[in-house]
């Protein structure tokens, strides 16, 4: 159930985790905009490296490397596609700028994955839901979101139990061709679905019993407030954006090979 493992948020206490999720989102958007602004490799590399300190401060490097590994195949595809299409487009000549361009495109993708994974690795679902609520997303939606996250480990455990039980009765999961294998999972899925329906009824009952929907003006135990670090990140985002705009307009960005001894 490694798929579910990946969804499980690990609670760490770090300055990055404590940041307001809305501010982190602003930062992600900034990274996104800047990454899209440039085709050149150098600014994208810079963008890639200035995010590393965040990852280290948040102590999520291991998870981050895992998510980057997950993205690596896609990155490779992007690189090859760009390389080939450029090659065909520019008249069938291999050249250094061709490679640099393709690398740039790949790094644009990597930077996007990097900033999104920083966001999701350092924002607890609780915090995220709170941010959504305070951004006037309907509470029912936020509730559905946190409840889904809450029951991911429960369902994973249940699926495991059912699998073990069905295996003990002689079900062979890893036998046969693709279609057969998919079919093998039906005896797992049916009890899982039936159980989930029963569970959801019990949940609804429990929610009703705790005054669900009693007041139109629902309050919240927590409130998000901007603090020192949050202003720091906003400032950092603005600064990055301004430098990027300036660079885009007034600086001719050199090829990376101008700096490399080739």
């Amino acid at each position: 159930m490694s798929v579910f493992e990946g969804l499980r948020f690990r609670r760490v206490s770090s300055p990055i985790h404590k940041l307001d999720p809305r501010v982190k989102f602003v930062y992600v958007c900034t990274a996104f905009v800047v990454a899209v602004m440039f085709n050149e490799l150098i600014p994208l590399l810079i963008l890639f490296f200035i995010q590393i300190p965040f990852i280290l401060t948040a102590r999520v490097q291991r998870e981050w490397i895992r998510s980057m590994k997950g993205a690596s195949l896609l990155a490779l595809i992007i690189f090859v596609t760009n390389l080939v299409s450029r090659y065909l487009y520019t008249g069938h000549v291999w050249s250094v700028p061709l490679v640099e361009y393709s690398l740039g495109m790949t790094f644009r993708f990597i930077v996007l994955v990097e900033s999104f994974s920083i966001f999701f690795l350092t924002t607890s679902p609780d915090h995220l839901s709170l941010a959504l609520e305070q951004s006037h997303v309907p509470y029912e939606l936020c509730f559905a979101f946190t409840t889904a996250v809450r029951f991911v480990p429960v369902l994973a455990e249940e699926a495991q139990t059912i699998m073990d039980a069905q295996r003990a009765r002689g079900l062979e999961l890893d036998r046969g061709n693709f279609i057969k294998r998919v079919k093998n999972y039906i005896p797992i899925l049916i009890p899982l679905i039936v159980n989930s329906i029963r569970r959801s009824l019990q949940l609804a009952e429990a929610m009703e019993s705790r005054a669900w929907g009693a007041s139109k003006k629902r309050t919240n135990l927590y409130i998000l407030k901007l603090r020192g670090g949050d202003f720091g990140i906003i400032l950092f985002s603005l600064l990055t954006l301004s430098i990027a705009i300036y660079a885009k307009r007034y600086i001719l960005i050199p090829s990376i090979f101008a700096f490399l001894p080739i």
Binding site: F143, T146, R150, R199, A211, A214, K217, T219, L221, Y222
Partner: peptide
Amino acid sequence: NQLFALSVEKDVAFGLENVG
């Protein structure tokens, strides 16, 4: 099946939040 939130504290607060 009667706990919905992602932390104990938040769960205990659930009913009170509902009544505003």
